[in-house]
Computed example of a mutant assay.
Amino acid sequence: MPDLAAVATALSSLKTATDIAKFLRETDLSLERAELKLKLADLIGALADTKIELVEVQEALVDKDRRIKELEAAFESKDTLVREYDAFYAVGEGGKPIGVAYCLRCWEGEHKKRQLVEDHKDFRIRVCAACGHRYDNNRTQDHPVPTNSAQ
C-alpha cells in the first residue's frame, strides 16, 4: 500500500502533466491540428480524473491511519478497564473499579471511553453524551479514587 508521501508525489506529478497539457492545448496551433487539440483535451480530462482518484486514496489512507491509532489506543487501555454491572471503570488495587463510569455500549462497540453523566431531568438515570444510551444510576455509580498520602 502506498504511503502518503508517494501519493503526494503522484499528485504533484499529475499537476505538472496537467499544466503541460493545458499549455500545449492553449498554444496557437493550426486548424489542421484540431485533432491534436481534442486529444490533449482528453488527456487533461483523464489526468483530472486520476488526480481526483488519488485525492480519494490519500483521504482513505489518512482515515485508516486515524482508525489504526484509535484501535491501538483502545488496545493499550484494554487492561486498564474493568466492567462492573452496566459500566466500565478504571482498574484500582486488586482489580477493583475506581473513578468515573464509562459507557458500556461505546466501549464495547467503538472502544472509546466516554463518561456517563446524570440526566438533567431524572437523577436516577445516567446518559452517555455521545451515543445517548441511558443507564440506571444504581448500576453505574462512580467509585471514589483512593488518595495516596505518600505523594
Rank of each mutant, 00 (worst) to 15 (best):
K39T: 10
L81V: 15
A101E: 04
A5T: 10
V100Q: 13
T16S: 05
E26A: 11
K96I: 07
H133M: 15
F123W: 10
A60M: 06
D42H: 09
Y85L: 15
E72K: 07
I125F: 01
D49Q: 11
L40G: 03
Y89H: 01
M1S: 13
A73F: 03
D63N: 12
K69D: 14
A6Y: 07
A6N: 06
Y89N: 04
V145E: 01
A101G: 04
I98Y: 01
A150R: 12
G95C: 02
A130Y: 06
A73L: 09
G132T: 02
K51G: 14
E76I: 12
D63L: 12
L11N: 00
R33C: 10
F23A: 13
V7F: 02
V57Y: 05
E35P: 02
A150I: 15
T147P: 05
I44A: 06
Q151N: 12
D119E: 00
E35Q: 10
G95P: 09
I52R: 11
P2D: 09
N138K: 09
G94C: 04
G95I: 03
D28I: 06
G109V: 05
K15P: 01
D119V: 02
A46R: 08
Y135S: 03
L47A: 06
L31K: 11
C106D: 04
Y89L: 08
E118Y: 10
E70C: 04
D119Y: 03
E59A: 14
L24M: 09
H133F: 13
H133D: 13
A90E: 15
R134T: 06
A6E: 15
T80N: 14
D136N: 14
L24Q: 06
V55A: 11
E32D: 13
K15A: 15
Y85V: 06
D86G: 03
G132P: 01
R83M: 11
